[in-house]
């Protein structure tokens, strides 16, 4: 099973302030553990939302909105993709991450083909077509 771990933005990440050396070292060690256990599939950090754009859809109109975006706590600052045996295992790995200070990190299973086994045909087709993009 694969999981996406979503790290939300904060003031520092939005301002492009790098975490201090201690946090970077701890995070490096943590990532190393994930790699050694064969759990880590991918990881990336995102640039602050000031570098981003949004496109708003309204009928046939498309409006491009420049970052930064206001709702800092809802923004994504980075993600991991993990491969684990179960949701419980993924939760255990997440508990070991070196975060502090009231941070909440979200863990979401990535949808697999099998999740759609009982779905109506048109849903399966949509899922397959989505994979083609």
């Amino acid at each position: 099973m694969r999981f996406m771990v979503l790290v939300k933005a904060n003031k520092d990440s939005e301002n492009g302030v790098m975490p201090d050396a201690k946090i970077m070292t701890d995070m490096g060690k943590y990532n190393e553990q994930l790699i050694k256990a064969g759990v880590l599939v991918a990881a990336d950090g995102l640039r602050p939302s000031s570098h981003g754009k949004r496109v708003r859809f309204d009928g046939s109109n498309r409006t491009v909105i420049d970052g930064p975006f206001a709702e800092t706590k809802e923004l994504i600052a980075g993600y991991w993709v993990w491969q684990c045996k179960s949701l419980e295992e993924a939760v255990e790995w997440l508990k070991r991450a070196p975060f502090g200070g009231g941070v909440e990190i979200e863990l979401r299973p990535i949808a697999e083909m099998a999740d759609f086994a009982d779905a109506p045909e048109f849903v399966k087709k949509q899922y397959q077509d989505a994979g083609k993009s």
Binding site: A37, K85, S86, E88, E89, V91, E92, W93, K95, P98, G100
Partner: peptide, 23 residues
Amino acid sequence: MAYASRRVPADPHRAIEAVFRIE
């Protein structure tokens, strides 16, 4: 690193087995 009080999982046995699988 201290864990918060909301550490009591819904099914403690499954969580413990997950820890064990990792270790």
